[in-house]
Lab assay of single mutants.
Amino acid sequence: TETREFDNEEEARKEAERLRRKGQDVQIRKKGNRWELRRT
């Protein structure tokens, strides 16, 4: 599992969408005042 953190939700969602188009399974969750993007 690979995780990346983003400062805002929009960036996290854009990156998640990009990875999903490549066929990756991605989850986003709020972590304090940041957003965590998890690739499984």
Rank of each mutant, 00 (worst) to 15 (best):
L19N: 02
A16L: 09
K30I: 05
L37E: 03
T3V: 13
Q27Y: 13
F6G: 00
T40W: 10
T1W: 15
R34C: 14
E15F: 06
E17D: 11
N33V: 04
G32Q: 04
K31V: 15
E10M: 10
E2S: 11
R29T: 14
G23F: 03
K22P: 03
N33A: 07
D25S: 13
E10H: 09
A12F: 00
V26A: 05
R29A: 11
K22M: 15
R18Q: 08
V26S: 04
E11Q: 07
R18T: 09
L19F: 05
W35R: 01
K31E: 06
T1P: 12
E36L: 07
R21E: 12
R38S: 14
F6M: 02
E11M: 06
R4E: 09
K30Q: 10
G23Q: 02
E9F: 15
D7S: 06
T3M: 12
R39Q: 15
L37M: 04
L37I: 12
V26I: 08
N8T: 15
R29W: 11
T3F: 12
G23K: 03
N33R: 04
R29F: 15
N8R: 05
R34D: 03
Q27F: 11
T1A: 12
L19K: 01
R29M: 14
R39G: 13
L37G: 02
K31R: 11
L37H: 01
A16F: 11
T40F: 10
D7V: 06
K14F: 10
E5W: 15
A16H: 04
N8Y: 05
T40Y: 10
Q24F: 15
N8S: 14
I28V: 13
E36N: 00
T1L: 13
V26F: 09
R21S: 12
R4D: 07
I28R: 01
E36Y: 10
E36A: 03
E5T: 13
R13I: 14
R18A: 09
G32C: 03
Q27V: 14
F6L: 01
R21N: 11
L19P: 00
R18I: 12
I28D: 00
K31A: 07
R18V: 10
Q24M: 14
A12C: 13
A16S: 04
N33F: 05
E15L: 04
A12Y: 00
R21L: 12
E15Y: 08
E36R: 01
N33C: 08
K31Q: 07
E15R: 01
T40I: 14
E10P: 05
R29S: 11
T40H: 09
K14R: 12
E15A: 07
F6P: 01
G23I: 00
N33K: 06
G23P: 01
K30D: 02
E5A: 07
R4K: 11
R4V: 14
T1G: 12
K22F: 12
E9S: 03
T40A: 11
Q24E: 13
F6I: 01
T3G: 09
E11Y: 03
E36Q: 06
R20T: 06
R4N: 08
R34M: 12
R13S: 07
E17Q: 09
K22S: 11
R4F: 14
R39F: 15
D25L: 13
D25W: 13
K22W: 10
R38H: 15
R21T: 09
R13T: 10
R34P: 00
